[in-house]
Amino acid sequence: MASKSPILSIENLAIGYGKPPNQNMIMDGLNLNLFSGQLVCFMGPNGVGKSTLIRTMIGAQPPLAGQLFINGQNTSDITIAEMARLVSVVLTDKINAGNMTAQELIAMGRYPHLGWSVSLSKSDIEVIDQSINQTNINALRNRKIYELSDGQLQKVMIARALCQDTPIMVLDEPTAHLDLNNRVEVINLLSDLAKSTNKAILMATHELDLALQSADRIWLAGPDEPIIDGFPEDLVLNGKIDEVFGLKGFDLKTGRLEKQLGKGEVSLIGDGHAFLWTKNALERYGYAVVDESEIVINIINDSNIAWQIKNKGEYTVNTLEELISLL
C-alpha cells in the first residue's frame, strides 16, 4: 500500500469556522491519506468535527490552514465544476425532491457531465443503469422519492453519487436512522463498491462494530487528539478505540458486552451455534461457563434441540427460557 500514491492527501490541515479575529478552530495539524479501492470509516464521538472535515474535503467550506491535494493537485486550484468530477457526496441534508422518481434523482448524478439542457446521452443512461444495478435497486427505479423508506432512499443517494463517476466518494453518516439490516447492507455495499469500482470511499459513521468488520482503514478522531489513521484491528488492540470512545461495559477485545458473572458456574457440553447461544444466555443471566462444575448442561442436538441438566436431579427442557428458570 505504501508504494501507491494517495488519491487524496491532507497536509497540515486546520479546519473550523470564521475569519481570523473570531476564528473557531476545530481541528488542526491533520495529515491524512486516502487510497483508491479502500473503504475508510471516519469515526469519533459527536461534535468532534467529523462533518466539518467532510465539508472542508468536499469544498463546501474553506480550510483555515494547510492544503488538500487530489491526484497531486491542490484543491484551491480546482474549480467547483472540476471538483464535481472528482468527488461525489452523500450528505445528511434533507432533500426536497419528493415528487421525483428514484431514477430521475439518480440521473442528477450525471449533471457535472451534462450541458445546461440536461439531456442524457446514451452513455449517460448506461452509467445510470450500471449504478442502479451495482446498488441493487432495480425495483425502486420508478418509485417516487416520497414512497421510499430511509434505507431505500440512502441506497438511491449512493447510486446517485456512484453515477457521478468520480474517483472519490464521501459519505456523511449514511447509516444514521437505519435499522440494523439496512446498516449492514449499506456498509457491505460501500465495501463492495470500493473493491469493484476502485473508488476511494470515505464514510463518517458511528457503527463501530460494522466498521471494524468492513473498513480497510479507520480514521479515528477523539477530543484533544489529531485524527489517527490505522488498520481497524490494530486500533482495537492498541486500545486507541477504547481511549476515544471510553467504552463502558463493552469488552472490545472480545467484541462483547461485559457481563457480571456472579451467580455460579456451570459446565456446558455441546458445539456449534447451539453452544454459542446457550453460553450467551447463561452469561447474560450471570452464570460463568467453565470446564468442570457440579451443574452440567448437555445440549442434545437431534432433530429437535433440547437441553439436559444434571444438577441435583436430571431434567430435560426444550427451550433456553425453561433452562434458565430451572437454574
Binding site: A60, I80, S88, L91, K94, I95, L105, M108, Q164
Partner: peptide
Amino acid sequence: LSENYAKSL
C-alpha cells in the same frame, strides 16, 4: 436536493 448537493454537482 440542497445547496450543498448543488455545489457538489
